[in-house]
Amino acid sequence: MEGDIAQLGQFIGAGLAGIGSGAAAIGVGHVAGNFLAGALRNPSAAAGQTATLFIGIAFAEALGIFSFLIALLLMFAV
């Protein structure tokens, strides 16, 4: 399989961008874990906050999706 230095750069860049997905996973885990900790402390208030939980997860995840997108762009579009 022949390639050039630009393709090498693309693949390395895409791999690095993939780290962002892991970072987003940490963020999502933080949100969910803290929600669970709070919910166990005060279960009666938890039900009303599930919407906030999902919004928080969505925000954290969006940034991970951005890095995934950058990886995809490097792989396929540049």
Binding site: A58, F59, E61, A62, I65, F66, F68, L69, L72
Partner: peptide, 13 residues
């Protein structure tokens, strides 16, 4: 941007 890419990105991924 985030609103649209979140959905598309999740589905695509």
């Amino acid at each position: 941007v985030s609103h649209s890419i979140r959905l598309a990105g999740n589905m695509m991924a």
